[in-house]
Design a protein around this nucleic acid. Structure first.
Lengths: 227, 227
DNA sequence: ATGACTCGTTATGAAGGCGTCAAGATCGGT
DNA sequence: ACCGATCTTGACGCCTTCATAACGAGTCAT
């Protein structure tokens, strides 16, 4: 679930510096040095975010924005050495989401990237539906639908547990984390609660509650949601 | 369809200057000089955009952002005299969409406002008419029609609740969000109100008010409009 | 085999949430 | 000032949900 960033700049040094920083912060980085390469990479890889320098050798920066915007709503943050106000306004009105003037501070860029990704993530509601063979879970609508199409009713606690497990689907979630997040840190040792609620969830979701396919127990460690 | 902007700043001069500029550009401007007034105005008027100064007399600016973000996704642009990088990052991570340092150029602010509104605008509006087997709701005309074709009369509060539920039809809407959007953040815990009005809506809309088909209660979490 | 341990399952009293009704309070128009 | 519509507020009984305990099954080391 890493965020994929397309970085476009004609200066190989800057490109390298940004790549190192972003990779260290957990982003998957793809780079392009020309406008055409940027458009190709955008179409091929559908990045979650674009960092765009306006001073490209082949195409005007605003042309890249226009072209991208003709088919995509991916957030675009412009990085530019031009301090001219008209450039800023032009880029923003063409479809850019944000505009930073070089030199900028790396922490600020990272904060603006987080803000841009956060914005683009929620309203579109794409990744919020997790479907299996037997049921599907809509995290945004807080809705679980059966294979027959009927809705499954979950209590607040059941939903809280399922939500954590599904958000980190595939990964092992420790009992401690579940208990701390739902009941509070003081209940870290009440593993009893988890057994009760996991049983209820299995009865409601699993085709064969006695032999769980999705809500897996890792004995002594925690639980895992498996697709 | 003019864009309504809430401008928050403790300095009356700046407030006045911004108001004049924005009004001249076709925005509908509402102002607030304190954090509390801002939160009240936000809940009452549902602005399309918030311009927020961080240096308020009563509340910390980030507290205002947090409170707004607990129930609203309205774009927030922070205007601040603080040039400190940490403030910027903090505000952005709390939920702000953009951050401008004073003094800023008016054209740039306007361009960033256009970008923020553009982003937030379109993805939410779906069909304005929602029809079920028993009634149909016209969100644009604010009208509800019975199966027999007669119009159902709703009070303003009833309509406000129904509108929120129908706009996010299928999704669970938390009690907190309903109360914050309609009565204001201070009424977050008055779940009593919701019970009364949901009962009234059911009596007017449901074929069998005792056994709701459309206005579903999710105990402990919120309400859902089901098609 | 025994005991220690973890897990799944079920049952139950208590607490809190919910629907309902009805009586004041408030507001707006005549 | 009056009246109707609307909103607030409190009280009551029902129902859902929660915490908790008890018990059986499986696993592992001794």
């Amino acid at each position: 679930m890493t965020t994929r960033v397309l970085v476009v700049d004609d200066d190989a040094h800057i490109l390298r510096a940004i790549r190192i920083h972003l990779t260290a912060c957990g982003y998957a980085v793809r780079t392009a040095q020309t406008g055409r390469a940027a458009l190709r990479a955008g179409a091929e890889e559908h990045p979650d975010l674009v960092l765009l320098d306006l001073g490209l050798p082949d195409l005007d920066g605003t042309a890249v924005i226009t072209e991208l915007r003709s088919w995509s709503t991916v957030p675009i943050i412009v990085l530019s050495a031009r301090t001219d106000g008209a450039d800023k306004i032009n880029a923003l009105d063409t479809g850019a989401d944000d505009y930073l003037t070089k030199p900028f501070s790396m922490p600020e860029l990272l904060a603006r990237m987080r803000a841009a990704v956060r914005r683009s993530g929620s309203p579109t509601d794409r990744d919020t539906v997790v479907a299996t063979l037997d049921f599907s879970i809509d995290l945004a609508a807080k809705k679980v639908t059966n294979r027959t199409g009927t809705q499954v009713h979950l209590t607040p606690t059941e939903w809280a547990i399922l939500e954590i497990l599904v958000r980190d689907r595939g990964a092992l979630v420790s009992q401690r984390r579940l208990l701390s997040e739902i009941w509070g840190p003081a209940y870290r040792t009440e593993t009893n609660y988890l057994r009760v609620y996991l049983a209820q969830l299995r009865r409601k979701l699993e085709p064969e509650p006695a032999r769980p396919r999705y809500l897996i127990t890792e004995s002594g460690m925690g639980y895992r949601f498996q697709d």
